[in-house]
Amino acid sequence: MARKLRILMAKPGLDGHDRGVKVVARGLRDAGFEVIYTGLHQTPEMIAETAIQEDVDAVGMSILSGAHMVLIPETMRLLKEKGAGDILMFGGGIIPEEDKKELYKMGCGKLFGPGTEIREIVDFLKEKFPDRT
């Protein structure tokens, strides 16, 4: 039997805006995925550690503080360094288009903006992991 898709929803940095991450975490759980939420105020180091310990398929970063150009690449670098570069990074929040382009170039998965419906995120993940339920 195929393993369930396991997602870590993460809230990096000092940003306290957690409405979005909580709604998405619930939505992904309702879509049948296994969802782990880090809680607030995580460093890239803490997120990478949790992602590996929890053996997740993907990490969803929620950032509304403008610190995405530091926190997303740093978390990706740490995952790679710890031999977990295959974990898919994706995210959402207030991220301008030009920054998105740059992050995509670094290998980051899709970054969702305000107004996104949960099913768009579900569809994206299902497409990325066709062999998971």
Binding site: G13, S65, V70
Partner: peptide, 9 residues
């Protein structure tokens, strides 16, 4: 822990 957040929000 302030890295990347100074003066942003």
């Amino acid at each position: 822990r302030a890295k990347g957040e100074v003066g942003k929000c």
